[in-house]
Design a protein around this nucleic acid. Sequence first.
DNA 1: CTGGGGACGGGGCCC
DNA 2: AGGGCCCCGTCCCCA
Length: 266
Amino acid sequence: MPRSFLVKKHFNSSKKPNYGELDSHAVLISPFLYERYPVAVIPQADLLSSVAYSPITVWTSLLPPPLPSDLSPLSGYPSSLGRVSPPPQSDTSSKDHSGSESPVSDEEERLQAKLCDPHSIEAEKFQCSLCTKSYSTFSGLAKHKQLHCDAQARKSFSCKYCDKEYVSLGALKMHIRTHTLPCVCKICGKAFSRPWLLQGHIRTHTGEKPFSCPHCNRAFADRSNLRAHLQTHSDVKKYQCKSCSKTFSRMSLLHKHEESGCCIAH
DNA sequence: CTGGGGACGGGGCCC
DNA sequence: AGGGCCCCGTCCCCA
């Protein structure tokens, strides 16, 4: 599956995003404020909006998603992202002592006392295999694993704006930029998720085309477009129909070809 | 209808 | 950890 499908499918995939509708803290700058803008010089800092570098807000899955009614939210969570909060007190007072099967009654009492003492080393007999935290009861360990470590082992950082989840905070931050669009073109006001996307956009204003085809000297503003163009110089193109072996320079052309029923005709 | 160009999006990798 | 860059991809438009 194409990687870019993952997020775009949350929007109407047939249209470009409506930047104005997004709840962004980006500052849209009216174009007429820039009667004269530097045409020859590419970017950067003076063309890039200052908001491009403003910090963004981050959420983790441990906060917003609604928890089941029988599960209480983790206390002390994400003030420090990814930090492991101390095991809830209720863990050590749990009534589920399924792991303690001491046969002697006084021994049982001694164990019971230690189970009530969260600082007792002997009380921590159920250890998490993922983070080595210990719990006195199996249920305590189970709750810990359900709410924390298993979640950490899976994708743990989810986006506030959509359903996407990420294994790392950095990936989530990067994704959230696609919602906040902090990079705003000072010339036309269009917003982008990343500075280099804005740089590419600014080339549409300046006309700069730094990527040249070695075969025909045609120049492109976008490296991907040059790559696609290079396919046109190739006899055998990158994308091939499995049925008729015809090759195409672009995936979209191959898809059109397949949808048009060529393969059926063969 | 097909092929190609323009503009742009998003995840991953590398420094 | 964060930013820059790369790669792969889509969508739209036009000849």
